[in-house]
Simulated scan of single mutants.
Amino acid sequence: MTRDPEPDPGWYYNTRTHEVEHGDLSRSVDRLGPYPDEATARRALEIARGRTEAADRADRDWDGG
Rank of each mutant, 00 (worst) to 15 (best):
M1A: 02
M1W: 01
M1I: 03
M1Q: 03
M1Y: 01
T2Q: 02
T2R: 05
R3S: 08
R3Y: 08
R3P: 02
D4R: 00
D4L: 00
P5G: 03
P5H: 06
E6W: 01
E6R: 01
E6L: 01
P7E: 09
P7I: 04
P7L: 08
P7F: 07
D8L: 05
P9H: 07
P9N: 07
P9C: 05
W11P: 01
W11S: 01
W11R: 02
W11Y: 03
Y12P: 04
Y12F: 13
Y13G: 06
Y13C: 06
Y13V: 05
N14R: 10
N14T: 01
T15K: 06
T15Y: 00
T15P: 00
R16N: 02
T17N: 00
T17E: 03
T17D: 02
T17W: 00
H18S: 13
H18V: 04
H18P: 01
H18G: 04
E19R: 02
E19Q: 01
E19L: 02
V20C: 04
V20Q: 04
E21Y: 02
E21K: 03
H22K: 07
H22D: 03
H22A: 01
H22W: 12
G23M: 06
G23I: 04
G23W: 08
D24K: 09
D24L: 04
S26R: 09
S26K: 06
S26W: 00
R27F: 02
R27I: 02
R27D: 13
R27S: 11
S28L: 04
V29R: 15
V29S: 15
D30C: 05
D30G: 04
L32P: 05
L32T: 11
G33V: 08
G33E: 05
P34S: 14
Y35T: 12
Y35C: 12
P36C: 11
P36I: 11
P36V: 13
D37Y: 12
D37L: 09
E38F: 11
E38H: 15
E38R: 15
T40I: 10
T40M: 12
A41M: 11
A41H: 09
A41T: 11
A41P: 08
R42F: 03
R43D: 14
R43Y: 03
A44T: 10
A44G: 09
E46I: 08
I47A: 10
A48S: 11
A48H: 12
A48F: 07
A48Q: 15
R49Q: 13
R49I: 05
G50D: 14
G50S: 12
G50Y: 07
R51H: 12
R51V: 09
R51E: 14
R51F: 11
R51S: 09
T52I: 15
E53K: 13
A54I: 08
A54T: 13
A54R: 15
A55F: 12
A55T: 14
A55Q: 15
D56Y: 12
R57M: 09
R57I: 10
R57Y: 09
R57D: 11
A58W: 09
A58C: 08
A58I: 07
D59Q: 13
D59F: 10
R60Y: 10
R60N: 13
W62D: 14
W62K: 14
W62H: 14
G64R: 02
G64Y: 04
G64F: 04
G64M: 03
G65R: 06
G65K: 05
G65N: 09
G65H: 09
